[in-house]
Amino acid sequence: MTRRDYEDDPGAPEANSLVPAASAVVVDDEGRVLLQRRTDNGMWALPGGKMELGESIGDCAIRETLEETGMTVEVTGIVGTYTNPGHVFAYDDGEVRQEFSVCLLARPTGGTLRASDESFEVAWFAPDAIDDLPMVPSIRKRIEDWRSGQGPVVR
């Protein structure tokens, strides 16, 4: 399934769903950030996805990181909450999802780095190496919020 992101775009389709989601800024002992190159849009992104019934937002971030990157993580904090009603994701099945995401901070605890059916490339990056990667603005914003160190943000 393909996905197109619209952020504050007057030509964006109207949202028809709202789904809680989590993402994770996973930082290793060397200060590198874990990113995946998504199969649905070809862009680099943080691991993350929609929350399932019966799980917490932290469990969601842990599960999605493992599924998408092969890495097990421990949640250590919160980067911010992202609920901009002007940010929608349009899927080719007709769903247009309004953003509702909590971005958590995590550290790796194990696993083996690998791609998945949602990511065709997974890698660790020094923070300054991220700037030139193709990435949607909302993901770049989360990384910048983490780099700023200003604590949890509400957007």
Rank of each mutant, 00 (worst) to 15 (best):
L46P: 02
Y91Q: 01
D92K: 03
D93K: 01
V25T: 06
A15F: 02
P108C: 01
E144R: 13
L53C: 00
V79S: 03
I78G: 11
T65F: 05
V88M: 00
V122G: 07
M51K: 14
L113V: 11
L18C: 08
G111N: 09
V102S: 08
M1W: 10
G49L: 12
L53P: 00
R63K: 07
T69M: 07
A45H: 05
P137R: 15
G42V: 08
T112K: 12
R3K: 14
P13D: 03
I130G: 03
L133T: 06
S17I: 07
C103A: 11
G110F: 10
E67L: 15
W44A: 09
T39L: 07
S17A: 15
T109E: 00
T112W: 03
E99H: 11
N84R: 11
V79C: 04
D59K: 14
A115C: 13
I130A: 07
V75Q: 06
M51H: 08
T72M: 07
G80I: 02
E55N: 04
L113K: 05
T81Q: 14
T72G: 03
G86T: 07
A24V: 04
A61E: 00
V122M: 05
I57A: 09
G31Q: 09
V25K: 08
S23D: 12
D132Y: 03
